[in-house]
Design a protein around this nucleic acid. Structure first.
Lengths: 309, 309
DNA sequence: GTCAATTACGTTCTCCGTAAGGATG
DNA sequence: CATCCTTACGGAGAACGTAATTGAC
């Protein structure tokens, strides 16, 4: 009780041409083989579908009934294959990404735009979430790809480091720090300091700094970096944010300067759920980010050597 | 680019069980063979549909897309096969019959009722038509089975004789003829005679009688036999109708008596279009009528012998 | 160590093509 | 007798089962 697509196609070809020889040709098969296919089909369906002699080929009553179903079956098969292969061919599909807000404002959108230009049929969805949620969404399958400062449990996730980023000091433009090419930790002592929310990744990796540096506590703690920019501008103090978050803080009257200190860099990882293959579209996105990383490495490697020497 | 029903079924089984071993068992196949089937399917579709290791089996993104199509394909296949095989199994279907009005009033309905009792799911359609139209309807496929006094061109139609029927004289109950056990042609001489329509089969086979017998022409010509009964009762004359049409003519005040004369019998044929197989349902109906005929023959054969001897 | 999926491999069966056969107009 | 479907038959490949292997927990 099988029913292969080929047999259904053969049936339709014969029903349309009403001639074995033509139908066989359309199916790229010899006439005897085609005849056998029809016989096989009739055996499997359990009833004769065509009345035929050497001159005329017509549908039986049961053949007419079968014909309608055959068309539907063939249509469903075509549609299903087209649907799946459209996704494989990147003409359709969807990529869902989770990333921290800092990267969601500029770094990631730029890359998403490039991807969209190459594959306009693929829907892109971006969830800008805090660190823990990112891994949750990966685990539950809500997103295909995560970008995060924490790589998660290696047994659960496959993670590759995309880049490292340093930290920048954000201060009012009329502050003395604003004119410098970089800032050291010593220069921040006794400064009023605006904290970021404890759940955010920024707080996480700067925790030791904040706890040990001799900041003057302002009592301020913000969730959104854009808020932080406003507070700095209004003179409530200074803050430290990751390199890629600088753009969000900046506004008229606010300046950012690189912080030069040990332990103030963080790694950003590209993460996927382990044991779960990516969709074709997601895989291409993943590869795009990886390829870019490798290109950057090749370009920056000589510079590092100079710095190291 | 095939896609056999077995592969689709295998996919659905695995998607539901999430275990190769169980799915293989459900498909009545060994586990390795089942594994190969999935691999084949993935090759044909062109993309991996399941992520799997020895512990877990999950759909890929493409697999999820395919799953929806697979269910539709499987459903269409099931529905189509069920539809066709329902007809083969006589649980559904349709039989369309064309028959002359004389047989449509009683003889045929009785047999249709018997058929319906055996196969309540099969729709029966009866077209009570005149002789020419019967063959037309067969030719065009409007009906599956014809019952007719003319068997048509043997190159076009397959016909078997169902029975022969004699003719009966229809007269008022107070007519002298009404008391007789039978009537001869001689007794009808100079009688007022009511003609049936020239297109009807009754006229056709009685034509030579009407033309040569010495009837008194009434000028009356009716199409429907029920009309004829009324005219006879009203005293416009007598008429001659085939045996099976007697019932239609009879009403209060009208009597029918067998006509004993050469050339006043006609054969009724069971007819089908040549080179076109009958649907399962129609075939069963055909066989039912044939079987009944043979049973009648066996029963009436001795009687005939007596009459002949 | 155990359980489950997969690979290896020999066998069977399906399915195709070529060539001959048979029916129809 | 020409056309077209079907049967006959041999070979290529598909698909299955058994047994061995790999991999995860």
């Amino acid at each position: 009780m099988n029913l292969s697509g080929r047999l259904v196609d053969a049936f339709i070809a014969l029903e349309e041409t009403r001639r074995f020889s033509l139908a066989a040709e359309r199916c790229n098969i010899s006439a005897p083989a085609f005849s056998q296919m029809i016989t096989r089909l009739e055996t499997q369906v359990g009833v004769r579908l065509f009345d035929r002699d050497t001159r005329k080929v017509t549908l039986t009553a049961e053949g007419e009934v079968f014909a309608q179903g055959a068309r539907r079956i063939a249509a469903e098969m075509r549609a299903t294959l087209a649907e799946v292969q459209g996704r494989v061919g990147l003409s359709s599909g969807r990529v869902q990404i989770a990333a921290p807000p800092s990267l969601s404002s500029w770094w990631l959108p730029r890359r998403m735009a490039r991807f969209r230009a190459d594959h306009p049929g693929i829907a892109l969805r971006l969830a800008d979430v805090v660190s823990d949620r990112c891994l949750d969404m990966l685990r539950s399958g809500e997103v295909d790809i995560g970008i995060n400062a924490q790589s998660g449990n290696p047994l659960e996730f496959d993670a590759v480091r995309l880049f490292q980023e340093g930290s920048w000091v954000v201060c009012p433009s009329d502050d003395a720090l604003a004119g410098q090419s970089h800032v050291t930790l010593r220069q921040l002592r006794h400064r009023k300091f605006i904290q970021t929310a404890r759940s955010g990744s920024v707080y996480q990796y700067l925790r030791h700094l904040v706890e040990h540096a001799d900041f003057e506590d302002t009592g301020l703690e913000v969730t959104h970096l854009s808020t932080l920019g406003g507070l700095v501008r209004a003179g409530f103090g200074v803050s430290i944010v990751p390199e890629h978050a600088v753009g969000i803080c900046l506004q008229k009257g606010v300046t950012a300067v690189p912080l030069q200190a040990e332990g103030t860099t963080r790694s950003i990882y590209l993460i996927r759920r382990r044991g779960h293959s990516l969709s074709s579209a997601a895989d291409v996105f993943w590869q795009m980010l990886l390829g870019e990383r490798d290109a950057d490495r090749a370009a920056t490697a000589p510079a590092r050597k100079r710095r190291a020497s």
